[in-house]
């Protein structure tokens, strides 16, 4: 290819890319502008929001004081942590052994179990909540944090097990053979040898679970819609609905910011892990 033609083809290539750049920049620019504006608005006054001079009278931290204290944002945040962190730990304790067993042991019913996992992935939450609601009110658990921790753990079983299976399947069997020769039982062998070997996958699924439990809305609305139980998302709905009447826009934006900042910050640091959680599992969000 002559030099001239090369330049022309290079130019043509960039020309073809131009609309691509344009679309991506508009899309991403919009995203950041929206988030940025809302953050600035949350530090302004309602008046400034309407006149379009954000931050004209300096930073108003009082919006956050109100959102955290008066509107119980802090308590909601604590509740979200109380639901999310134990669930993430329990999910691993339950799903890692199951994924290991299904992916490496040959036994009758193994194929059926794999089918059941796939079915579990497709069952919508609405089919689950009615009987759970009746069990929980019969057991008198409706006022406790335990309910959502249990539900978050249990409903994550299909996806987390499904996600971890290929990682266990990929480990060489020599590790187990060596452990067995040394007299190490299967349970000890699992926790001491196999579990550390798939650690990257465990970290990925845990971050992924953390974000999806943090953002879960429907079950939280059904099972934790009392002021002392509300997680951050359900709390936001309550706060905005009541603020809409008082017209405190700055306060509403502060409440919105409190909800999205934790996951966005985590994402900023761990985006690679989170994205690989999407593409490696590749089945369900």
């Amino acid at each position: 290819m002559s030099r001239k033609r090369k330049i022309i083809s290079g130019l043509k290539k960039e020309m073809l890319r131009l609309p691509g750049y344009l679309l991506v920049i508009v899309w991403v620019g919009f995203t950041f502008f929206m988030i940025g504006w809302i953050i600035l608005a949350s530090f302004s006054t309602t008046r400034e929001i309407f006149t379009g001079d954000l931050l004209a009278s300096g930073l108003h931290v009082s919006n956050y004081v109100k959102a955290f204290i008066t509107n119980k944002g802090l308590r909601n945040l604590m509740n979200s942590v109380i639901y999310t962190v134990p669930s993430c730990v329990l999910i691993i304790l339950v799903c890692a052994p199951a994924a290991y067993c299904i992916s490496r042991f040959a036994f009758r019913g193994n194929g059926l179990l794999q089918k059941l996992i796939l079915i579990g992935l497709a069952i919508p939450g609405i089919m689950i909540i009615m009987p759970m609601f009746s069990i929980i009110s019969t057991l008198n658990l409706s006022g406790s944090h335990f309910t959502l921790i249990f539900l978050y753990t249990a409903t994550s079983v299909p996806y987390s097990t499904f996600f971890l299976m290929p990682f266990f399947a990929g480990v060489s069997t020599t590790y187990e053979d060596a452990a067995a020769i040394d007299g190490c039982g299967p349970v000890r062998c699992f926790w001491h040898i196999m579990f550390p070997l798939v650690q990257p996958a465990i970290v990925t699924i845990t971050i992924f679970n953390f974000i999806s439990k943090w953002n879960e809305y429907f079950m939280a609305l059904v099972f934790a819609n009392k002021s002392e139980l509300r997680p951050i998302g359900v709390g936001l709905y309550q706060i905005v609905t009541s603020m809409m009447n008082s017209g405190d826009w700055a306060g509403m934006f502060a409440s919105v910011v409190i909800v999205f900042v934790p996951t966005v910050v985590i994402y900023a640091f761990l985006s690679d892990k989170i994205i690989s959680g999407v593409t490696a599992g590749g089945v369900k969000g």
Partner: peptide, 11 residues
């Protein structure tokens, strides 16, 4: 582009 997926749907 993926960013909105980590934000809660209510927010």
């Amino acid at each position: 582009v993926y960013l909105p997926n980590v934000i809660a749907a209510v927010a």
